[in-house]
Amino acid sequence: MTETIARAVPPIGLTLRSLLRADATVLLRSRQAAILNLAVPILILIVTNRGGKLGNPGFLIGMALTYGLLSSALIGYSITVARDREAGVFQRLRVTPTPTWAIMASRLAVQLVANLVVSVIVMIVGSIMHNTTFSFGVYLLMFVVSLLGAVVFLSIGQALVGLVKNATAVNAVGRVLFILLILTGVLGSTGILGDDFKSFASWTPVGALINLFSAVLNTSAWGADQTNGIIACIGYIVIFAGIGIRWFRWDPQ
């Protein structure tokens, strides 16, 4: 008779462990990502600390945190995914018995953990520079807001690689989007551009997140802006994650 070489699907635990280890190694080895995600927010803290009263410490630290989260999603995550897709890295992974959700989930999980580590470091550095101390509760809330922000921005990054296929185009569009979001969010939140623009900005992804961070870091300033911020964030996650999953294509071209 025939002895069929029966081969079961590998256990999902081993699959996920293998993917997570590889994705974490990739992240640790890419020095450019480390610079963008950690050094720039710290630079922001240094510059704003010297420049006199640009805003209160909560706002400035919030801005640095937001910058780190946004750049790691739009310039780190999206570009790596688009590049790997174009190079055929995903095709090679997809011919193994690995569910496609696991390939994406592992990348996103590693990215989220890295984001949270960066957030904690930025917050510690920020509190030292601005001579403030934060309670454990504030750290915890900051952690939750960072997670929310990371998910918003990664959803936007996912939508970007869902709608744009070409890696060079993703790179260009990602950078333009990054600047637009930062400018509208940051300039709007400072109020330099007027009240109308300020209330518009509080609904943008970056503006909403800066508002949430400054409310958390200033402990008392919770208001309509913050409630709107949470509503906006959840809305953005639903819309952009939806687009990013619906239109994502694995194959090159």
């Binding site: 079961a8 699907v9 590998p10 256990p11 081993l14 699959t15 462990r17 293998s18 993917l19 280890r21 590889a22 190694t25 992974l93 193994t96 018995p97 690995t98």
Partner: peptide, 14 residues
């Protein structure tokens, strides 16, 4: 070496 380890894992071998 890291790639080989990854693919071994994806095929169920540690």
């Amino acid at each position: 070496e890291q790639i080989a380890r990854l693919y071994a894992g994806l095929y169920g071998l540690s």
